[in-house]
Design a protein around this nucleic acid. Structure first.
Lengths: 170, 170
DNA sequence: AGAAGTAGACAACCTGGTTGTCGAAAAAGG
DNA sequence: CCTTTTTCGACAACCAGGTTGTCTACTTCT
């Protein structure tokens, strides 16, 4: 509890570095909450990156190379992701009849269930934010953020943060 | 150029998952810009995590254990960070005269220069955002984000994203 | 003095990425 | 039709930034 914070609340709203911390912190809070709730609802091994990868698969990136392109990562990394998803039973692969090189990926029922649960929880959390801010305010915030994001592909090579409680070694 | 995007702009502002992507994307855009500019200004090996670690060091976390507590990571990870900073010449360590176990860390002139440059660039980017949004708007946005962050310590175990151009293997 | 706690080092490991190389299959083009 | 080029996926080695667990040296508390 006494972990002193790198950013100790209510800062004077001015420094660019703090703005970055605010953005990162908000993201983390949102995502951590979703991951925790997902674990509680029977998906203890779901990681943020899985969600995004499965979205891309659902949207048509049904093989390693395409998934890599879609996620702006290498096909090798994409293949690893697919392997992880397969291990956990969220997707299956099979040989493509059209192209003997391809291994075609698609979601299992379990995978679809994860996506439904994930989307629902995301929306719940967003609804809580909306309640705190007011509907118009949140929409405005999203619009403003969208301006900064522009049309740049969002790279989510953000890795390991599962928000496990940090118990310092022994 | 044809990397299809996971989030293709102007989304309808409603889904919680997209909100997460907006936050992450904004953060990445901001930080990538700073890292790039830092490289251009003579700090080609500066990583986002360095900035944050050095801030904590400057704020008094002048040994591995303290730095770990400050950053909410293990002391081992903190020691690795200190090693990386030392390698790059941003900090030096010396034995503490008061406590023979401790290795006291402090910033070098080069490290201070990095921090000055980093802060300046961060502020420049923020100023550009402010210009686009209007001063009041950005302040409001920051305030709203601060509400979501609350007083939770911001964990920045976000790792490897340096936004290097993704050239797919051969 | 002795017990308990803390600082840091070392080793092994994990995750989500990265190169680079390769063989097999498909597509393009003479 | 045969050759060249491209693409897909696999394998191996590596890296960054974390994690545990174990261990020794030093401090502090009683």
């Amino acid at each position: 509890m006494s972990t002193c914070k790198i950013y100790t609340g209510r800062m004077p709203t001015g420094s660019g570095a703090d703005l970055a911390l605010l953005l990162l912190g908000s993201y983390r809070n949102l995502v951590d909450e979703v991951v925790d709730e997902l674990a509680r609802r029977g998906f203890p091994d779901a990681r943020p990156s899985h969600e995004y990868a499965m979205r891309a698969i659902q949207a048509g990136a049904d093989n390693a190379s395409a998934l890599g392109r879609s996620l702006a990562i290498t096909k090798q990394a994409a293949a690893k992701t697919i392997a992880a998803l397969t291990e956990r039973g969220y997707v299956t692969t099979e040989a493509s009849p059209l192209d003997a090189r391809r291994r075609q990926v698609h979601l299992t029922e379990h995978g679809l269930a994860l996506m439904r649960a994930g989307a629902a929880i995301f929306d719940e959390v967003r609804a809580r934010w909306e309640q705190r801010l007011g509907a118009g305010e949140l929409a405005r915030l999203e619009e403003q953020l969208a301006q900064f994001v522009g049309d740049s592909p969002i790279r989510l090579d953000a890795p390991g943060w599962v928000a496990r409680d940090q118990a310092d070694g022994h």
